[in-house]
Design a protein around this nucleic acid. Structure first.
Lengths: 200, 200
DNA sequence: TTCAATGGCTACAGTCGATGTAGTGATTCA
DNA sequence: TGAATCACTACATCGACTGTAGCCATTGAA
């Protein structure tokens, strides 16, 4: 099943990982723009140029492995049981998409760091928003195809946008209140339920 | 009433306007990153350094005069008539906040260009979204204070986030479809109505 | 085993956005 | 009128990011 990649590929992944770990280590001690790409590369013992072979930008190294799993949401939509209602499917898709990544990050120490930096650094925040936005479009399309009688090209994006907006806002607000993981998760679920009510 | 500003201030505004117009002129012919700040400054006949005295970044010259008017939304909330329902107030606040800036732009030729560039240039899109994001928290607080019986510290941010998310997503989707200003506006209104339904 | 192709990595040079600093000259105000 | 203010300038510098050409380990086929 799982093909073991060749030596070349393994080496590549190793330097990628080294870059991520070096970056995290450095960002833990200093603020975002006090850490240069050159330093990260140096700490990972590669050339600065190599950094950009692995990541498109300085922000991306912090967002590594945080790809929004749109595919999981799409699966959730595809797997809907006959007769299952729109709100149910939508909530299930969102949960798949969000909590999967969320959980993976919680186990590593990365989640907290990322949250802290994203809150303080506009560039990072912007890049994150961008990712969610592109994910939204895909999700909206899939949802519309699954419920062509309920959604059109205007309401589908609006609905998905509302979901993502509500969940993000409640998470941010909870995090800023200093809530723990469970409370944050609860707030997110509550937000989903709220939006779900708008499409009975 | 209207104090006429001194000569110094008028000159300052003139160079600011010259920079904006030079930028617009250049962006009309070439794509976003094929236009350098140096060129814009050159076309406006000022030094490159002066550009950054007027705008924090290259993106900002295109987002000039597009400040999100949170204050207008707060007014709308404060002015609510006795007995007015939550959804009505919320929609009114959002409309104040968004369409005010929107309309001012339609009269100038800037709106179309901005829409086109924002749709194609992620950096610009992100910066725009970010503005709305920062406005959210304020709005949520005010709304919760206005309806303490209906909203708590979890639902208020969620609701506002849903609104902003829905409106943004529908606008982006409409713009990418190539819709005109009226259709975009319609999509935004529809998005608001959708979310409003979740709080009867 | 050999050899050519592949591809990750490097050094080097360069572009561009953005900021710090010191100075000039036109306004502003006492 | 004289001093303070402030928009603007030239100059230097930093750091993110890109293009290019070459090196060398890995790979796959002869």
């Amino acid at each position: 099943m799982v093909e073991k990649p060749g030596l070349r590929e393994r080496k590549k992944q190793r330097t990628r990982q080294a870059l991520i770990e070096a970056a995290v280590r450095l960002f833990e001690h200093r603020s975002y723009d006090q850490v240069t790409v050159a330093e990260i590369a140096d700490a990972a013992e590669v050339s600065p140029r190599t950094f950009f072979l692995h990541f498109q930008s300085k922000e991306d190294v912090l967002l590594a492995n945080t790809d929004v799993r749109v595919d999981l949401a799409l699966e959730a939509i595809a797997e809907r049981r006959a007769g299952e209602r729109l709100p149910g499917v939508l909530v299930r898709a969102m949960e798949q998409m969000i909590f999967n990544a969320w959980d993976r990050d919680l186990s590593s120490g990365l989640a907290a760091l990322r949250a802290r930096l994203a809150a303080s650094e506009p560039a990072l925040q912007a890049r994150l928003l961008q990712r969610y936005l592109t994910a939204q479009a895909e999700l909206a399309q899939a949802l519309q195809r699954a419920f062509p009688d309920r959604l059109d090209t205007t309401t589908a994006p609006a609905l998905v946008g509302a979901m993502v907006g509500a969940v993000s806002a409640s998470a941010v607000s909870a995090l800023q209140r200093g809530d723990g993981p469970d409370e944050v998760r609860n707030a997110m679920r509550q937000a989903m339920a709220l939006v779900a009510r708008s499409v009975t």
